[in-house]
Amino acid sequence: MALIKCGGASFEFDLRLVLKDINFEVLQGDYICIVGDNGSGKTTLLKGLLKIKRPCKGEIVFGDGLELSDIGYLPQSAIVQKDFPASVNEVVLSGRLNSRGLMPFYRKIDREIADENMELLSVINLKRKCFRELSGGQQQRVLLARALCAAKRLLVLDEPVAGLDPLALNELYKIIKDINEKKGIAVVMVSHDIKNAVRDASRILQVQTRQVFWGKAQDYINSYEGKRLMQVLKDENGGVNV
């Protein structure tokens, strides 16, 4: 049974239809990449999956015993206010909260898991630093560490590579792939980066207000839409092979 089943879901924003009739499902251990142009409704769809936004038509149902507290989430860009006092440790640890239920405090194991994830994303040396004083790329990695702390069965990532330099970017894709393969945590990622999306993801969903493509990553490369997008990328890179 699917972790999440999205059946004919439509979303409105300010009475304007931003997504129409989306049908797909997230299976255990899936790696799904959602692609589409700016303003195509990708972020709205993620908010729908996380039950922050309700579909105006259709339904999004959790199956296989999936709970919100099994999900780790990386928001699009740090929406954190400039003057917020918080250490990296405090931020990452807060990802463990959803495992604590009604229990008020963190256990030793929660702190260890937080440390592990900080290590994995090489931000452990920033542990005591103030979050707001980090660079954009560092903040992104801290927030990913927090998401990993929260993710038990599903990891939802909104533009995880935004603001990263190419080297850090490849490292990040490798970490996500590892988590997906070794821990069996399903990944749903919104990305602009088609090239890497196609390489790592098992399935692709393309949206452009409506659903343009849904299927295996390999089939996507051969599809009309996939070819068109790859062509655009090639042109942008000045004809260099992508």
């Binding site: 039950k51 922050i52 918080a86 959803n98 927090r146 939802v156």
Partner: peptide
């Protein structure tokens, strides 16, 4: 800890089941 979480990032807290 929960007050910290909803103060720091309400959307994340909500998305992860708090």
């Amino acid at each position: 800890n929960k007050i910290f979480a909803v103060t720091f990032d309400e959307v994340f807290a909500q998305a992860t089941g708090i």
